[in-house]
């Protein structure tokens, strides 16, 4: 496991401050009435605040040494709420015809990559769980990435019901378009990307870069112990 250097710590503190800062500025501007979006200021500013909290999770995990995610991973994950929140603030969903498709597809790719990496970590650090060949890992990545689209649609539905408005889902075609076109496209693109990655690097090479040894060794052993049969003991 690599040492946690001072430089890394400084970078993590900077990320912890800078990641939510953009959202906080946008939230203040929305409250002041500067947003270009077609939605109520309360909705736009609430989205910025929730996003600000979400983007702090990965830097906090790094600082507390619970999960030292690679920086490229942290930036990719952070880009998703930024894309949504900035688009909402600037009214891109209404200004550009295919913006919803782009936003959904991009989010689906990032979620898919998180799923893909999680499956590789499970495959690498557990002995008794075996996800099989590259093809089956890609298959599971695909179904989970696509399935997450449904969870997002349910979230939209819950928010709409809670606020009593069609803030997030507009029509059945909107939901179907998100699920069947955007999310499916995202899941397919993720699989293509994951397939290219796996053809160039081994699972060990990908996972060991993440410095998860200490954390995952413990979890992996626990998992293996839990998976064991009485006959194996």
């Amino acid at each position: 496991m690599q040492e946690y250097s001072k430089k890394e710590r400084t970078t993590d503190i900077a990320c912890l401050i800078l990641f939510p800062l953009g959202f906080i500025i946008l939230a203040i501007l929305a409250i002041m009435g500067f947003s270009e979006g077609f939605f109520a200021e309360t909705y736009i500013s609430s989205t910025q605040i929730v996003s600000a909290i979400l983007v702090m999770i990965l830097p906090v995990l790094r600082l507390t040494k619970k999960f030292r995610s690679p920086y490229w991973f942290m930036f990719l994950v952070t880009s998703v709420p930024y894309l949504h929140a900035v688009s909402l603030f600037l009214g891109f969903y209404h200004s550009f015809a295919n913006w919803d498709f782009i936003s959904h597809t991009y989010s689906s790719i990032i979620v898919g990559l998180i799923v893909f990496i999680s499956l590789l970590i499970i495959q690498h650090y557990t002995v008794r769980i075996d996800l099989g060949s590259t093809a089956t890992i890609l298959f599971f990545t695909f179904i989970i990435a696509w399935g997450f689209g449904n969870i997002w649609e349910i979230t939209e539905w819950i928010i709409d019901n809670a606020f009593g408005n069609a803030l997030m889902s507009y029509s059945v075609m909107d939901t179907l378009g998100d699920l069947v076109i955007s999310d499916l496209t995202g899941a397919i693109l993720t699989d293509v990307l994951a397939g290219i990655i796996l053809s160039r690097y081994s699972i060990t090479q990908i996972v060991e870069e993440m410095n998860l040894d200490r954390f995952m060794d413990r979890i992996g052993k626990k998992w293996d112990k839990k998976c064991g049969n009485e006959s194996d003991d």
Binding site: I143, I144, G147, F148, G149, N150, L179, L184
Partner: peptide, 14 residues
């Protein structure tokens, strides 16, 4: 199983 169900219902809906 959970995600397979969700993906299948997406395909069905589609």
């Amino acid at each position: 199983t959970l995600f397979m169900s969700l993906s299948t219902v997406s395909a069905y809906a589609g």
